[in-house]
Amino acid sequence: MQSKIVAHDPATGEILGICLTPPQVMAWQAQGLESIDAPEEVGLSTHRVVQGQAVAKVEVELIPDQSEIIADGQDQAVVAVMVSGEDPPESLEITVGSQSETVSLVGGVGAVSPITALTPATVLVGVADSITYRCEPVGITAVEDDQL
């Protein structure tokens, strides 16, 4: 199996570059990054570096009960949060649009506060810590209330 060289920020463990040939390593070192050898499956969006080892990011699933709501201030969407793994955290910071909310988890499961809208808009919900966690953001779209 062919291995890769991955560059990471030593402070955060975030993987910032992947290459197959050594010359790139010197350029990374000049930028203050550290490099390690890693297996082929390691990717920028799927792994991070912890104590000199490439490890898979913890997978977080965001599941909305509905992705489209009526912009009437009453209709609401609730996004469930599911953290995989054997030792999930007790809480997780979730971004809601430009803001964030700390969601309490029980057994890795929790829910973001309901999202409502008074005007048509799309709100993106995601995970704040994208270095530790791997998550596909979900969009909640509020559409015009025809009765107004």
């Binding site: 999202i115 809208a117 008074l118 005007t119």
Partner: peptide
Amino acid sequence: QSRLALSKSKDRWVVSDPASPQA
């Protein structure tokens, strides 16, 4: 979209356009 405001009210996130009739 840029003038929209997102606030929390009564444990719910509310998206609003401050200039809209609804808001």
